[in-house]
């Protein structure tokens, strides 16, 4: 049996929406971008509850979660961060994309969000950042397992 390195397997990304809003133009486009960059994207309907997002991340063993928020649903993301940690998924990186006021962005970063993408973010930036975060997540998980 040959041994493959982790890097030969595409990053796995959960693209989802939490809270109340249901506009999915942005999340669809981002999902397509990530796919076209060779990643595997698990795509969901909007309105996922926090514990469901955690469950999906766990079952699908994703590296990165992308939360799209066009209204104020990003306010719930700190709760997601806590729930991920509690489920032993601390290595999973979370990015938020959409309309996020500056003040709130700082709060999200404090809560452990890796990156906030605003409207107008370039594809290459999104793809590059997600790929780097995925690699980081895998490394961290390996370390967790080794220790």
């Amino acid at each position: 049996m040959t041994s493959n390195s982790d890097e030969t397997f595409p990053p796995r990304v959960l693209v989802t929406k939490i809270g109340l809003d249901g506009h999915d133009r942005g999340s669809r486009i981002v999902a397509a971008f990530l796919r076209d960059a060779g990643m595997e994207v698990i795509y969901t309907s909007p309105w996922q509850e926090i514990d469901r997002v955690v469950r999906l991340a766990l079952e699908e063993d994703v590296d990165v979660i992308g939360v799209s928020s066009l209204a104020t649903d990003h306010l719930l993301v700190p709760k997601l961060m806590v729930a991920l940690e509690d489920a032993g998924l601390g290595h999973v990186k979370v990015v938020v994309g959409g309309i996020v006021p500056d003040d709130d962005e700082a709060d999200l970063v404090d809560a452990g969000v890796s990156k906030v993408f605003h409207p107008g973010s370039a594809r290459d930036d999104i793809v590059g950042e997600v790929a780097a975060l995925a690699a980081k997540a895998r490394r961290e998980r390996e370390q967790e397992n080794a220790s």
Partner: peptide, 21 residues
């Protein structure tokens, strides 16, 4: 409010989101 759009009363959603939109 978005909670109204989704068909909920205020007491059914996370208060963090109430009246924000």
């Amino acid at each position: 409010c978005n909670s109204v759009y989704r068909g909920y009363d205020g007491d059914e959603v996370d208060p963090l989101l109430l009246g924000t939109c």
